[in-house]
Amino acid sequence: MSFRVSRFTVLIGVCLAGQAVAHHSFAMFDRSRSETLNGKVKELDIINPHSWLKVIVKDAQGKESTWSLELGGASQLSRLGWDKLIHPGDSVTVTMHPLRDGSYGGQFVSVTLPDGKTLNDGRGPGQNTATPGATAPRSQNTGPQGR
């Protein structure tokens, strides 16, 4: 049996492999834990090497804090149609790997939109590395918990 791989296929593979190599480690994020945030989208900034989603979260006292969530690169998000699906003001539930120092930020895992649809950011295998059952809700809106 002969097996032929076109140059085009190889080229696409090389390009995707290049994008899959993160430009930095994710040492500041605690990838052994996942937390959820309920809030409203403030801003989606699609940019390389990483895009960012800002979400405004209210705590139990009504105090607002802005969370910055690191996403994949621009090409990945564009392929998934993020720019058409996420809008400022949308109520969302975000799952993330929190920062180790408790700051208002994290590595994005997934987002559930107002219509119930769930999106990831296309980083694929290795992205969701949280220990099963380790997801802790932050937003029964207990808020930032003194952070």
């Binding site: 390389n48 564009s78 720019d83 809008h87 400022p88």
Partner: peptide
């Protein structure tokens, strides 16, 4: 490798995409 610092997605869509 890659195109860090470039706003937008695939070639030809390099404009700002802030929402």
């Amino acid at each position: 490798k890659g195109r860090p610092g470039v706003r937008g997605g695939p070639p030809g869509n390099a404009g700002p995409r802030r929402r």
